[in-house]
Amino acid sequence: MPSSPSHPHVAVVAFPFSSHAPKLLAVARALATAAPSATFSFLSTADSLARLPATAVVPAGNNNLRFVEVPTDGDQEETCPVWRRMEMFVEAAEGGGLRRAMEAAGDAAGGVAVSCVVGDAFMSMAAEVGVPWVAVWTGGPCALLAHIVGDAIRKDICDDDDLHGASGDELLTSYPGLGSYRVRDLPFGGGGVGGDMHRVMTMLLGRVARRLPRAATAVAINAFPGLFPPDAAVLRHPAVGAFVTHSGWGAVLEAMSGGVPMACRPFFGDQHMNARAVARLWCFGMAFDDDNDGGGKPSMMTRGRVAEAVASLLAGEEEGARMMRARARELQAMVVSAFEPDGGSTKNLHKFVEIVCARRV
């Protein structure tokens, strides 16, 4: 089933859990709109596709975008724990399920085989299917970097179980790009998530760290025009003056887009790095787990502390609060500029399209 070199066929492959599929669908729609002469197939499980909003599954104006099911093995019922469903899905995809789905996509496209895979980074088995793989990382860039150099960090500094121990407050100054983060900010280790889910996530992220540097043609971070979720518009309403959040990467981008200062309570994964960046690098918010009191003791999240933080972000007259609000407005202006027709994010999207639609012999 040969591919037509003049007619690119791009498979956008979702990781069908949590919020990953809607984010990858936004990527697929943005690419399909930007490259109307190319064919795009959105690959995910039947259950994942069924959970997408009806308006998303039938995208208006994207006649070059179709949907293809990725097969799953085993019991995928709701009674099956999420960690086990994730594990079974990855096993099935690694065992040929992704390749079969790509063949089905080619058949549905009139015999035009897939020429490039745009895949969620968690779908790193896409590196083995024989066509260029552009990985989409749905988190922040520093968290991705931490995972890629994670083995070196563990060897040099600590084991996963020691992230919150004696070395937890040490800065990662030996690692370029991570010098403003502490050991306890790292996106691996316990962090409140343990057991089977921790084991499965460690397995997935370990494969990303090994495969991405050697096999990915490019890596895309989810910060392109049109990729923000509809609820991001809420933060752009003039009545919104503060955002209390777990500091997931999507929440950080939404706050920047809305020009709203943040109060962060991270729980696990990359949320600690994001909260640290909000409070100490970009300076448009505060983190409840940070040593904001100046004495090295984390600020605990209590009802009183939340009320105090929100009041300060909304209308506090202290210098720090005024600076956070001003910085949030500055970042919003930078986002607006980046999304202009000649802005950096728009140019990156155009480069993204060029890469995935490149003619290959």
Rank of each mutant, 00 (worst) to 15 (best):
S41G: 08
A307P: 01
D290C: 07
R303A: 15
L49C: 08
L98Y: 06
A326F: 01
P132M: 14
S4P: 06
L31P: 07
A215E: 15
G206W: 12
A50E: 10
R29N: 01
A315F: 06
A232V: 08
D161V: 07
R265F: 07
P266E: 09
A315T: 04
F17R: 00
M262G: 01
H350R: 12
S124K: 01
M334T: 06
P341T: 03
T45K: 03
E317C: 07
A21C: 11
D151P: 08
C142T: 06
K297P: 00
H198T: 00
M88G: 06
S41V: 00
L31M: 08
A275E: 04
H20M: 00
I221K: 02
I157A: 02
M197T: 08
A32W: 10
G130D: 11
G150Q: 03
P341W: 10
R327N: 15
H20P: 05
G250I: 02
V13T: 05
M301T: 03
E103R: 15
A275M: 04
A101H: 09
M1G: 08
A307C: 14
D120V: 00
F122D: 00
M262I: 03
L98R: 01
V252L: 11
S345T: 01
K351I: 02
V244C: 03
R51M: 07
R207D: 15
S3C: 10
D75P: 11
A215G: 06
D156L: 07
E340Q: 12
L49Q: 13
A60Y: 10
F268M: 08
A220E: 09
D151M: 06
F89Y: 14
A109N: 12
S257Y: 02
A279H: 07
H198D: 07
V193D: 05
D162M: 13
L314H: 05
M323P: 06
